[in-house]
Design a protein around this nucleic acid. Structure first.
Length: 327
DNA sequence: CGCCAGGTAACCC
DNA sequence: GGGTTACATGGC
């Protein structure tokens, strides 16, 4: 499959305005995140695709000496000043560049279990380049299955319904929009994309986000409750949306994986009661339980990352693999 | 084979 | 309410 070529169209300087330290590397690359093909990372540089409505964008990101983040923007369509403003906001939000980390660090410095994560991951913020629709799809694919199968389902969906782009020497996948999968049936999601019982949920998710634009979502009184009205979307999936796309630092996805790590690190128990864990982390980190969970989970994977940082000479192989697996 | 994965809804009492 | 159980699928 031949990727669409994107051309360099813009350069953005993104200031880091939030309080506390900022780590470019640990913010953009997360040791625990599984392979999607939507992004790639070397020690100093990251590449990521974005959708702004129908426009496909590729972005190269790197830290600049003055403490800002530079974004080189690549597109092949009509890139307007409005796109530029939206992309600037999207990048700033996605990586928490304007969020205050200091209050969390203040709380964490008194907690022994946080000592090592806080040092090793100093300046890490939540990373969520996905919008509300995209992160809901990710969370849907995480439901009650192994990461191997989540990776397979993601690859199928993006290969069959998404896009393949090439920019700045890298080949990446890009998301489909809700409108682009509006006509796909649950049957196809199940048989062709191997989504299993989740196949029934995806058409509802697509319709929901096609009918509720960003303004609509922002105006929602209780987005978590609204999203859970979709059959197949429960507390876990809605929590991922809230903690990642809505960036609520108090929330975390309460799943068996998190419970294992948090139980072990905070209570010293392999099989602690979920409710006890939640109570404990919430009382230790009022308003910042999600950030605390983020630090503990990422630290758990830091020395055995799911997708290690790429060496520069590995990019050729990366590009080839993406093209041949995208049929 | 049976069990279990980074859950959810439907059903039971 | 709180405690089961089926739901798809693939790996061990």
């Amino acid at each position: 499959m031949t990727p669409r070529r994107l051309k360099h169209t813009d350069t953005l300087q993104l200031p880091v305005t939030g309080s506390g330290p900022f780590s470019f590397r640990h913010t953009l690359w997360k040791p625990s995140h599984y392979a999607t093909g939507l992004e790639a990372h070397t020690a100093t540089r990251s590449w990521r695709t974005f959708r702004l409505d129908d426009l496909l964008l590729g972005v190269t990101l790197y830290a600049t000496d003055d403490g800002t983040v530079t974004a080189e923007v690549f597109t092949d369509g009509d890139y307007t000043p409005e796109h530029r403003d939206r992309l600037r906001r999207r990048l700033t939000t996605s990586y928490g560049l304007d969020e205050d980390l200091a209050p969390f660090i203040e709380l964490a410095s008194d907690v022994p279990a946080m000592r090592k994560p806080l040092t090793a991951l100093a300046g890490m913020r939540q990373s969520c380049p996905e919008d509300h629709f995209e992160i809901t799809v990710i969370a849907l694919l995480l439901q009650n299955t192994t990461i191997a199968r989540t990776t397979q389902m993601t690859r199928n969906l993006l290969a069959h319904h998404g896009h393949l782009v090439h920019f700045d020497g890298i080949t990446l996948r890009a998301w489909f929009t809700p409108a682009e999968i509006a006509k796909v049936t649950a049957e196809e999601f199940k048989e062709r994309d191997r989504l299993g019982y989740r196949a029934k949920t995806l058409p509802h998710v697509a319709a929901f986000f096609r009918d509720h634009g960003p303004d609509d979502l922002a105006a929602a009184d209780d987005l978590v409750q609204l999203l859970q009205q979709i059959k197949g979307v429960g507390p876990y999936t809605a929590a991922i949306m809230a903690s990642h796309a809505s960036r609520d630092p108090a929330v975390f996805g309460d799943d068996v994986w998190n419970r294992k790590i948090l139980g072990k690190r905070l209570l010293g128990a392999e099989d602690a009661d979920p409710e006890e864990i939640k109570q404990h982390i919430t009382s230790l980190f009022p308003g910042h339980a999600g950030t605390a969970a983020l630090y503990l989970v990422e630290h758990e994977y830091l020395h055995t990352p799911v997708v290690p940082l790429l060496a520069l000479d590995a990019i050729k192989t990366w590009n080839q693999e993406l093209r041949t697996s995208a049929c």
